[in-house]
Write a protein that binds this DNA or RNA. Structure first.
Lengths: 267, 267
DNA sequence: TTGCTCCTCACGTCACGTGAGGTGGC
DNA sequence: TTGCTCCTCACGTCACGTGAGGTGGC
């Protein structure tokens, strides 16, 4: 009345192939065979197989299961305790993954920090075109990949700038400018406006000293708004970048160089 | 200012090899190469890779991830909901595994139902030898594997028998008899005592009709106590089986045949 | 005789890991 | 020149899955 391999397997909740695999790996001793060469299992095989399955289900590699099976009860229970905390870890991992899935449905929230998502929402609410918001978003994504630690400071500076009515006008004008011809005369006026605003803003910020000025705000405007690779998306923007850079004060020019160095150090 | 493969990978929490693997599988489009033949990634690659990683971490096979990525948002969110409930399932599975681990430390409790474990504890408390309790335990394990549905009824019947002081004496005597010679004259007396007790017990049970008698209790004693394969562990027990079977009443003999049929049907 | 279980190779699968051997930028 | 990153094969790994081809009990 000993068990056949399929009786053993199904009672322990594993496949027949898995039982044979455990024999091959030396985890479960080969039992005696009957007259037909069939394996016949006794009660101890049931006990061993349940042990093996329980540990394997808990994610223990079979090589480690092997060592655990013939280890002293004391170190066995220590190992089980360890596995248990690994299981707890897995559970909290899964719970985090459920949250991430929820955020995946919510759109950008998994890709960018909340503060940047809010910034983009604010722009959309201001009336900035979807295309320009998309370009902004891509810029932030790349920035987050290359220099994650500056994202937060830059986001706060941009948020502050958006609080200024004049900046909002400049930003909206720049949005419209995307589709202008590269030789449109209004690009010169817009460039001058930007540089003027940035110079004033810089004095104001340096005056208050409220936030450590990691990035020269004058440079920030030009760079953030018209960073080289973003400008590539529109001939008018590329021209706007050239015009505004040539109108920068010498002090800001050197700040721009500084910025480049910082970026390299950060990457 | 596009990303290299390692910048992309580390920002998304995957290995460089995994990114290449996703290219091979057609999950992530191959980006443009720079002058040195290096892959250069833009923001959309970050978004795609985070999507892929999130789904893969949730246990979705890559072949299915492929289909989900280019499915409509509506069916995408339906699929994500499905994955989420799969995650919930996994979490409760892990929690059950933690319980099973705890029971693994507690000994037999994973291998046998609680009622049988209690039965074995009771025997140990009675003074039955560890070896005999071990043989009993092995018998129950095999029974549970072959005919799980009869375990509960048999356990209740055995528990009832252990409530009888005379049965306990018989059981302890049988325990001692294990090491006797096969021709010991006391074996005949013990066999007669067992059959007598079983016959009386049978009348009592049939009189009360408290529990449906699935198994003739007289047969139950002989079979449970001395089931053929357990008897093999001791020459004296084998002889005790022969003696008691030959002393059974004709009615019980036919009941024994009935039992054999039931066992076959159950397996 | 048919259907079911069992047996032993031995190749397949899934999601990458891991060198092997070589090139390009600083 | 050295060290680091990148490149393309291509075999290895882990825990089995899945036939292929054959035998034994009812």
């Amino acid at each position: 009345m000993l068990l056949t391999i399929s009786q053993l397997a199904s009672h322990c909740g594993v496949t027949v192939r898995a039982v044979r695999h455990y024999h091959q790996r030396g985890l479960l001793p080969e039992p005696e065979r009957d007259a037909s060469g069939y394996r016949r299992y006794g009660a101890e095989a049931v006990v061993s197989l349940i042990r093996i399955k329980t540990l394997a289900d808990a994610g223990v590699p079979l090589s480690q299961v092997h060592r655990m099976l013939d280890s002293a009860p004391a170190s066995f229970s220590a190992a089980v305790t360890e596995i248990d905390s690994a299981l707890q870890q897995q559970i909290s991992d899964l719970e985090r993954r459920r949250e991430e899935l929820a955020r995946l449905l919510a759109g950008d929230r998994l890709v960018l920090p909340d503060e940047v998502v809010e910034l983009l929402d604010e722009m959309r609410a201001m009336g900035v075109s979807d295309l320009t918001v998309g370009i902004e978003r891509d810029g932030w994504i790349l920035l987050a990949a290359i220099a994650p630690d500056v994202v937060s400071v830059w986001a706060r500076q941009k948020k502050a700038a958006l609080g200024d009515a004049e900046f909002r006008k400049i930003y909206l004008a720049t949005d419209e400018a995307r589709s202008w011809d590269a030789d449109d005369p209004r690009l010169g006026e817009l460039a001058a406006w930007m540089v003027d605003w940035a110079a004033n803003r810089r004095d104001a910020v340096i005056g208050t000293d409220a936030e450590p000025v990691l990035v020269d705000p004058e440079v920030s405007v030009v760079e953030t708004l018209l960073a080289a690779q973003l400008a590539e998306t529109s001939p008018a923007w590329r021209r706007l970048g050239e015009l505004s850079r040539s109108e920068l004060t010498p002090a800001a020019q050197s700040g721009l160089d500084l910025r480049r160095q910082t970026r390299l150090a950060g990457s």
